[in-house]
């Protein structure tokens, strides 16, 4: 894959490492969660067949985390965007 780092530009996938689903926030106060709710945060992530907003880190270069929307059926990357921004496409 060729991944467009929002900071560095398009680079080969071997420069990146993967971080799974994007936009999963650490709970405000884990202590108030039930075990089941905490398990949801720890272990449950979306796994869609199709477009997926996911995290990547440009570990071999700028070391920045960013997000991508990628189609898991084709590996086509629809968009990449910086952490903290919302997905430009869904």
């Amino acid at each position: 894959m060729l991944i467009e780092c929002p900071w560095c530009g398009p680079r080969d996938e071997t420069e990146f490492h993967y971080g799974g689903q994007a936009h999963v926030s650490y709970p405000d106060d884990p202590s108030v969660l039930t075990d089941e709710q905490w398990a949801r945060y720890l272990f449950y992530r979306d796994n869609p067949q199709g477009r997926f907003a996911e995290r990547w880190c440009h570990g071999s270069a700028c070391r920045r985390w960013f997000n991508a929307v990628r189609d898991t059926r084709t590996h086509q990357i629809v968009a990449t965007y910086r952490t903290g921004e919302s997905a430009p496409v869904t």
């Binding site: 796994n47 990628r70 898991t72």
Partner: peptide
């Protein structure tokens, strides 16, 4: 391969 995929293929590296 590190990423999620349903494509039944991965990278050459």
């Amino acid at each position: 391969d590190q990423y999620n995929s349903y494509a039944q293929r991965g990278g050459l590296h």
